[in-house]
Each structure stands twice: as structure tokens, then as C-alpha cells.
Design a binder for these strands. Structure first.
Length: 585
RNA sequence: CGGGGCGUGGCGCAGUUUGGAAGCGCACCUGGUUUGGGACCAGGGGGUCGGAGGUUCAAAUCCUCUCGCCCCGACCA
């Protein structure tokens, strides 16, 4: 492509509305433009990179037997009601009524549509397994789009779905996806960590996320350097730090006027925070009933774990609700003298030793109770409700855990039969018996791959894209296009490289050298050929974007040299593929 | 949804406190000089000051409503 008439609107100044590096650079380098909150247009350079990424995805999906299809993004809401997700996803689903009065939505994902195809087309175990995928726009009415392409309302996702006749078959298809995903992210040049994750609104038994370490991310993962344990913070476990408990001799009620927080009360009582019991009131969204969760005062609640435990989305009770139900403000809630029908859950890390005594609210305004044991509490169930914090012990090996902010670029789920049962997608097994199809679901955020690559690879001059996803592999910077010999050589190199199937951008603009160098660095094309005054001596320069290392070569050998560098850069990435195992074989 | 910030040529901003002729830098157009890391000189085009209503002799500026964008939060009692 020739730059002169191309839509590559680079910006000298930083856009005011961009916060994270990838967002700033994508705007500055002319990859994207914003239409509205969470809605972006891909301009030629951005779309070029997206197409590269999508081609890698297609390659790898096809390699594990995936068949590409394309489903409507516009869905009748009725099909979403069949699984109950019209309700569950109501918050993020864009819905409207069309002109004939039909209730319609823009699909945030496609399990229901896939299951519909499956129930219409799949009859026998002989038809299974199947892997269907598409690359398509998804719509999610995010409460708060942000960080450029990292959280948007309309985005391109590769979503695939496996249909199996047995759980073993599902395990295989899941491992194949794990393999394909590792290859995809590796080929895109990303660093990533695979973690165990919560399946959230998708449902199902197991899931893994593919996370790119980056401060721009919105997810936190917990990992152990020693043994390799890793998990999303939402489900991560840990061994809490050892703490000492102060001896308390008698149980008594203490006047604690206006002291509501754990730290206020523990200071007032002269007790460590871990000897307080936090009494949190949550409400199960499925039955609307409140329940109490008790955790140590120095710990934090993990809502995701709680939701999994009670089997429903949960929300913290409103302060007004607490006063209405318990007659006290939240700051004075405690586990003793609670209503009989209130379920009480205790975090498993709270010791139930007879000798260890706790303090908590007294369920009476301005009073706390000091000196009770876990045995004094009417506990319904115990479970793991804690949020892991940095430096706690690894649940596998006991060494210290670390926490890292990451970008989620992929997520794979073993769905099981949640959708097939709800929608009646069945097959006949070899005994002639009808069974629900066993499903898996697998997603990749295409735009997030691009954004996280830029988060990983940039410098003060701009983007430094991995060659595999760069919209162009080579840029020819022709300096002073008013000189015929410069143009002649640059034109020749351009045609030759294109003839060798190299993706090359030809900067043929009548601009000063500084402008062209700055722009070339900004947009991050991996290899640059500078055609300038040295053509008089039959010489051009070849420069690598990542370190600006430069070599001068004869015009005649320039194409070979470029191909050599391209292969070197490609190989650096492809070498890593050898380490990825085919675990299902 | 709660809190905060911001809407002024394509981009980045000043002007708003204290009402009185819409400005600056970049970009763009013309001419000239330049030409290897975001050139210089001269001339020029382009703005319903987010929108609506109000106050006033007079509104970018004050008041009311509204729309949009960005940031923090939406859980720790």
C-alpha cells in the first residue's frame, strides 16, 4: 500500500480522552477512531492488524477440526428466555422492539443459537463430536466501557462451541481448544498465563482463562512462582497468614458509640482486626432471601465464591434493608441473637478453637459483644468465602503467592448440558437412548489481542508490533521523493517485495525525513527500509523497529536481507510453538 | 446507578472567577526558502463556544434543564 493517498491519520499530540498506552497509541498511530463510548472504527492499519489476528485464529481453529459458520447477531429474545439468560444477562443485553413489535436483542454471545442449530440438526451420536466457530461482532451494554479496545460495547469475538456425546469427548475437545488457544496467543506474539477461572453466567463445570500480564488489565490473577499454581482471583485459594489471638477472659457487651468499622472497633477494644468477625448481610437474587456471612476482620469477602456457594447471583443488602430486617445499622451486626430463619455461613479460615474468642456487633445500636467462640454461633454451613491477598501461602506448596493485573484475552468453558437440557438438544446414543448433548464454549477477544500486544510492546517512539500481527511487515521510507533515483529504487523494492508476498507499506509522501521516521516508528512496522541519499552509492538502510539496529546493504541484496530478517522475526515466535503439547493424545 | 472532571475550528488548549468585537499552538490551503529524526518566512480558509430555554442593552462567560465524553466507585459494615 502506498501511504500518500492512504487513510493513516497519525497524531502528533496525545488524545485527551485516552488513559492506557494501547488506547493512546492506537489513536495516535491512526489504527482506530472512536465513534461513541465503547464504539470504535478500525481504520486501515488497525483493521489490517485485526485481519492478521483473525487469520491466525482461523488457521488454528481449522487445525483442530473447527468449522467456520456465521450466526445472526440480531436475535429474537424468545430464544434467550428458553435458558433463562434473557433474565440473567438483562443488565448487559441490548434489547429493543422492532417495528412489528417483536422483542429483539443483539447477541452478547451465542450458546442459545448454537443449541438451536444443534437441536434441529443433530440426531445421533454418529454426528458427534462437532466443533463450530465464528468470528463475529458481539454486543454488550457494558455499564462502563473504558481503556480503548479493552472494554467496549461492540467487539469482535471468535466464539466456538463443541458438541459431544460423552464427558470424555468433551475433555478431548476442551484440551484441543486449550492447545489451539496457546498456539494462537503464541503466534500473536503475546505473553500469557493460563489460569483456572469462574464460569460465572456461562454456567458449567470447569473453565480456564488466558491472561496477558498488564497493568491496563481489569482482572487480577493469583499465582505461585514455585509450583506454578495459578487462578483468577475470583476462585483463588490460599493459606492465610498465621496470626496470634489475644486472650479474652470473659464474654461481655461493650458500649461502642458510633464505632462501626472493623478498624475503629478493634482499635477501641484493643483487639487485633483478625479477632473481629465481620458480619456481612447478602441477598440471594434467586429467592430474594438474606443470609449472613462471617469472615475474619482482616479478610475480605469474595463475592464470586459466595455466589458459587449459594448457587445464585448475590448482592450486598442495602443499609435500609438491614435496618428493616435487623433493627440495627450494618456497623453493629453480629452473629449472636440473630433471627432463627437467617442462614449463617462461616468462612473456613475462622478457627473454631474453644480458646479463641472473637468480637463482633451485638445487634444492638452502639454495642459490640466481646469474648465468644465459633461454638457459640448457630452456623448453617462453612465454606471458602475469602478473597486471597498478596503474600499469602500457596494452597499447593505453601510458598508465597503473588497477585498480578491481567487482560483476559481468551476463556474456555466446559458447559456440560445446561443449554442442551434447557432447549432440548439431544442425540440418540449407541443404545438408542436419548441424551442431552454435552457442550463446551470457547471465546477469544480479537481486539483485546491487538490492544494487549500494544500494551506489551511499545516504547517512547510508539508501537512495536510482533511481525505476525503487524498490518505490514515492512515499511519503505523514501526520503525526498523529489529525487528521481530515490523514487526509482523505492518503487523497485516495493514491487519486488510485493512479488515475494511481503506485506509492505510504501511511504511515498512528499514529507521531510523527520516526519516520516517519526510516523514509521509510531505505527510500529517491524522492518524499515530507508531509501535516501545513499542510493547514489547504491546503498539503502534496513532498520529493525524494536531496537533501531541498522544495517546498510546494496540495493540488489536488500530484498533478500529483508526476507532474512522477516524469517528471523517469524522464527522467534514460531520456535515457541514446539513447546505446546497435544495433551489429548 | 453514585461521586468527580470536561465539552470553545480536524487535534491539543486559553478565555468563564469579575458579562462588553472568539483567541493560541499544531494540522490544512497559496507562494517562497529548506530537505536524514515531527523546518522556516509571508499570506489565507475554517468555529451554531455540545443542545434548549431563561436573565440582560449585551452571554462562551450568569441561571435552569438536557445531551455527550472521560475518570473513580458500584462489596468489606
Amino acid at each position: 500500500m502506498r501511504w500518500n493517498k492512504s487513510l493513516i491519520p497519525t497524531l502528533k499530540e496525545e488524545p485527551a480522552d485516552a488513559e492506557v498506552i494501547s488506547h493512546k497509541l492506537m489513536l495516535r498511530a491512526g489504527l482506530i477512531r472512536q465513534l461513541s463510548a465503547g464504539l470504535y472504527t478500525f481504520l486501515p492499519l488497525g483493521w489490517g492488524a485485526m485481519l492478521k489476528i483473525m487469520q491466525i485464529i482461523r488457521d488454528e481453529m481449522n487445525a483442530i477440526g473447527g468449522q467456520e459458520i456465521f450466526m445472526p447477531a440480531l436475535n429474537p429474545i424468545e430464544i434467550w428466555r428458553e435458558t433463562g439468560r434473557a433474565e440473567d444477562m438483562a443488565e448487559i443485553m441490548l434489547q429493543f422492539t422492532d417495528r412489528k413489535g417483536r422483542e429483539t436483542c443483539l447477541a452478547p454471545t451465542h450458546e442459545e443459537i448454537i443449541t438451536d442449530i444443534a437441536r434441529n440438526e443433530i440426531r445421533s451420536f454418529r454426528d458427534l463430536p462437532q466443533t463450530w466457530y465464528q468470528i463475529q461482532n458481539k454486543f454488550r451494554d457494558e455499564p462502563r466501557p473504558r481503556f480503548g479496545l479493552l472494554r467496549v460495547r461492540e467487539f469482535i469475538m471468535k466464539d466456538s462451541y463443541t458438541l459431544c456425546s460423552s464427558w470424555n469427548e468433551l475433555d478431548t475437545e476442551y484440551l484441543k481448544h486449550d492447545y489451539a488457544y496457546r498456539r494462537i496467543f503464541t503466534r500473536c506474539g503475546l505473553e500469557y498465563i493460563v489460569v483456572g477461572a469462574s464460569s460465572g453466567l456461562m454456567g458449567g463445570s470447569a473453565s480456564q482463562e488466558f491472561m496477558v500480564p498488564s497493568d491496563a488489565g481489569e482482572d487480577k490473577i493469583v499465582f505461585c512462582d514455585q509450583c506454578g499454581y495459578s487462578a483468577n482471583m475470583e476462585i483463588a485459594k490460599s493459606v492465610p497468614n498465621e496470626v496470634k489471638f489475644v486472650e479474652i477472659t470473659e464474654q461481655k457487651k461493650v458500649h461502642t458509640p458510633n464505632l462501626r468499622t472493623v478498624s475503629e472497633v478493634s482499635q477501641f477494644l484493643g483487639l487485633p482486626e483478625h479477632q473481629m468477625l465481620k458480619s456481612l448481610i447478602y441477598v440471594s437474587e434467586s429467592d430474594g432471601k438474606p443470609f449472613m456471612v462471617l469472615i475474619r476482620g482482616d479478610h475480605q469477602l469474595n463475592e464470586e465464591k459466595l455466589a458459587q456457594f449459594v448457587g445464585s447471583v448475590v448482592r450486598p443488602a442495602e443499609p435500609e434493608e438491614v435496618i428493616q430486617w435487623f433493627g440495627v445499622p450494618v456497623g453493629f451486626l453480629g452473629p449472636l441473637n440473630t433471627p432463627e430463619n437467617l442462614r449463617i455461613f462461616l468462612d473456613e479460615s475462622v478457627p473454631d478453637d474453644e480458646e479463641i474468642k472473637f468480637a463482633s456487633g451485638a445487634n444492638e445500636i452502639d454495642y459490640h459483644i466481646v469474648g465468644f467462640t465459633v461454638g457459640d454461633i448457630r452456623i448453617d454451613e462453612r465454606g471458602d468465602f475469602r478473597l486471597v491477598s498478596d503474600g499469602e501461602g500457596c494452597p499447593e506448596c505453601g510458598k508465597k503467592l503473588s497477585i498480578r493485573t491481567t487482560i483476559e484475552v481468551g476463556h474456555i468453558f466446559k458447559l456440560g448440558t445446561k443449554y442442551s437440557e434447557a432447549m432440548g438438544a439431544t442425540f440418540l446414543d449407541d443404545q438408542g437412548k436419548q441424551n442431552p448433548i454435552i457442550m463446551g464454549s470457547y471465546g477469544i477477544g480479537v481486539g483485546r489481542i491487538l490492544a494487549s500486544a500494544i500494551e506489551l510492546y511499545s516504547d517512547d517512539d510508539g508501537i512495536v508490533l510482533p511481525i505476525t500481527i503487524a498490518p505490514f511487515e515492512v515499511i519503505i521510507t523514501a526520503l525526498d521523493v523529489t529525487k528521481p533515483e530515490v523514487v526509482r529504487v523505492a518503487d523497485k523494492l516495493y514491487e519486488e517485495l510485493r512479488g515475494k508476498n511481503i506485506d509492505v507499506l510504501y511511504d511515498d509522501r512528499d514529507e521531510r525525513a523527520g516526519v516520516k521516521f517519526k510516523d514509521a516508528d509510531l505505527i510500529g512496522i517491524p522492518i524499515r527500509i530507508t531509501v535516501g541519499r545513499k542510493v547514489a552509492d547504491d546503498i539503502v538502510e534496513i532498520v529493525l523497529r524494536r531496537d533501531h539496529s541498522t544495517q546498510e546493504v546494496n540495493v540488489a541484496s536488500a530484498v533478500d536481507k529483508v526476507i532474512e530478517l522477516k524469517e528471523m522475526l517469524d522464527n522467534e515466535i514460531f520456535e515457541k510453538l514446539d513447546k505446546i503439547e497435544r495433551k489429548w493424545e
